[in-house]
Design a protein around this nucleic acid. Structure first.
Lengths: 247, 247
DNA sequence: TCAAAAGTGTTTCCCTTACACCCATGA
DNA sequence: TCATGGGTGTAAGGGAAACACTTTTGA
């Protein structure tokens, strides 16, 4: 959104945007052996929300999602995929939006386009935590990582969106080979296993995991090793991005 | 749609509907060892289209999809699931809609809501071919089954929607156990195998298929057998619908 | 010297594959 | 009797699980 919200707020009829349609993005990161989600805090409201936005009249929906992702992370060429449309009528709740606007001393008319019912296309993104500089927009206090198992209360149905995004991630992890997007370019087999264990929320067998990953022939072992702990130095691996991993 | 289109056509601003958002449904059936798709033909236009519709202001999007499905097949409690949002700007093409309207002697103004850009939520449904009575609406000549590998040229990006629906069906067939929805309540193991072979477009090994299906513990063998051919009578099976198979 | 993590070897077990055999039935 | 389709038995093969062994490193 960046300064877009102001345009949207003062733009009472929503000129230039697709009406009634929004995007919400669950941006996953991985740090300290925890899955993280990027959330926005709206100024003076105590409201937490997924980064989202609206689609320009002359823009693909998928493009809009990339734009939202870029505005939060400044990253491009990131795994990003739609996973569900949230279109229940009972998700229409004007209270949070009115709160956000009120905190900015803006009192919308009741037929303001932002107060109408919205259907939201849910996207999830997998990003390299270390490359992201969370960027709030003009109406947000902050844009920060929150641990997935300690999320604050979220606006509207955003918790449900997060839940469904996690389910999708878990279901796709094995056969779409998308996990690497959550790590740095090079990583150890231990890093990768921790990631899998965290996402799937279960212990995996070390020897089996290693062999399975290597048998996929999607990892390149880098000659250079690593130093640090009181143990044998692990190899570093790199994902071979022959297949297009972007959505 | 039934008579809804007339309401939509004369309702220049689209009052009562979510603006810019549509539903397109790929309804799959199985007959003569072929996958079939239900298509509409619009009167005097030669245009073929997926059954679709719009969402009422006070209706869940998923509900709307069920309504569309019901209006075509009169079936309820059917497997129906969203699979993708088609939101590219270049799918906006007013020509076919103008043709449809023109064939009905209706010339819309250029700002008629139906001529605006639409984003469409794609659904796919799996139905029992033998239970369906294809039902056209007031602006359609017919609503009929077409063999998937001999579809006519479809309106707009509907061919792409069908392709993606098929991919989704193939990908979900094994782990979601949804294939049974395409058969009658009782079926033989041979029927089931033919279905799988058709969807996956490859031969399967008979003995292995039988054991795999039985090992899933989702089939109930019915004592009663079957008569007909010059061979041993096969058992009939029924899907045990303990798990909720609806979306 | 020891503990800890990393890489790999080995055995076992199970599922899939491949093939075979028997059964039931109508021509 | 035979051909055909259907159900199941059985042995071989491949991959995962379980366990063990070796390597490397810092304390």
């Amino acid at each position: 959104m960046s300064d877009e919200f102001i345009k949207q707020e003062t733009n009472v009829t929503g000129e230039g945007f697709l009406p009634g349609l929004a995007i919400d993005t669950v941006i996953f990161g991985f740090h300290d052996n925890q899955l993280k989600v990027l959330l926005l805090t709206y100024k003076n409201t105590g409201l937490f929300a997924l980064p989202g936005g609206f689609i320009h009249q002359n823009e693909d929906v998928n493009e809009a999602a990339r734009r939202v992702l870029f505005s939060r992370t400044a990253l491009t060429d990131i795994f990003l995929e739609q996973f569900y449309v949230f279109g229940n009528k009972n998700r229409h709740d004007v209270a949070p939006l009115k709160t956000i606007m009120a905190a900015r001393n803006f009192i919308p008319l009741n037929d303001h386009w932002l107060l109408k019912r919205f259907v939201s296309v849910g996207y999830y993104a997998l990003v390299d935590f270390t490359k992201v500089i969370p960027t709030p927009d003009s109406i947000s206090d902050s844009c920060d990582w929150f641990s997935l198992d300690a999320l604050p209360t979220l606006m509207q149905d955003h918790q449900e969106i997060v839940n469904k995004a996690l389910q999708t991630l878990q279901a796709n992890l094995d056969h779409k080979l998308i996990g690497f997007n959550l790590l740095s370019e090079t990583f150890t087999m231990g890093d990768l296993q921790s990631l899998y264990e965290t996402i799937l929320n279960k212990k995996l067998i070390r020897a089996a995991f290693q062999r399975k990953m290597l048998s996929l022939c999607i990892l390149e072992r880098i000659a250079k090793k690593w130093t640090g702990g009181a143990h044998k130095a692990p190899y570093l691996y790199r994902f071979i991005s022959e297949n297009n991993i972007l959505s």
